[in-house]
């Protein structure tokens, strides 16, 4: 079936918009509610008072990314549920693999722009690093995420 005729510029705009919406969440930033996660983090004892203080203020992110904010904060708490049967013992964190993934992720053309948008208005270096970890998490770069988080909370 032939496509309806559109102005070439309109078509181009639609393509760009579709690509952008697929590549990154474009909804407006909202405060992500992570109070429960922060409570777990505080209880874990893994985060010092300075880190906790920096995290207390809500993180603003597109609504789609709030689950990534929660996941990253929980990761800081190193909270891991018990139970279940694992295939094998978990392997220790591999910094060199993580560094390679981090380098590849941050070299992506869109990464810097999206990170800058998420970090806009944030001057606290800790919060900026957490936001970077959130973006890495959202992109599925979990080893790179852990590399950033390990710099905040050495394990």
């Amino acid at each position: 079936m032939p496509l309806p005729h559109r102005h070439p510029l309109l078509t181009l705009w639609l393509l760009v918009a579709a690509a952008a919406s697929h590549a990154a969440p474009t909804t407006a930033a909202v405060p992500c509610d992570a109070r429960d996660t922060l409570t777990k983090l505080a209880a874990s004892g893994n985060a010092g008072t300075g880190l906790l203080a920096a995290l207390t203020k809500a993180f603003n992110a597109p609504k789609d990314m709030c689950s990534s904010v929660q996941a990253v904060l929980l990761r800081l708490a190193n909270s891991q549920a018990s139970g279940g049967r694992k295939l094998e013992k978990d392997k220790p964190f591999n910094p060199s693999t993580a560094a390679a993934e981090y380098a590849a992720a941050t070299a992506q053309a869109d990464f810097a722009g999206e990170l800058a948008a998420l970090q806009a208005g944030e001057s606290d270096p800790v919060r900026r690093r957490v936001i970077e970890a959130v973006l890495l998490h959202d992109l599925g770069k979990f080893e790179a995420r852990d590399l950033v988080l390990n710099q905040l909370v050495p394990r």
Partner: peptide
């Protein structure tokens, strides 16, 4: 979302 190659039941 763990950074490994493990699995669990």
């Amino acid at each position: 979302t763990r950074s490994g190659d493990n699995a669990m039941a």
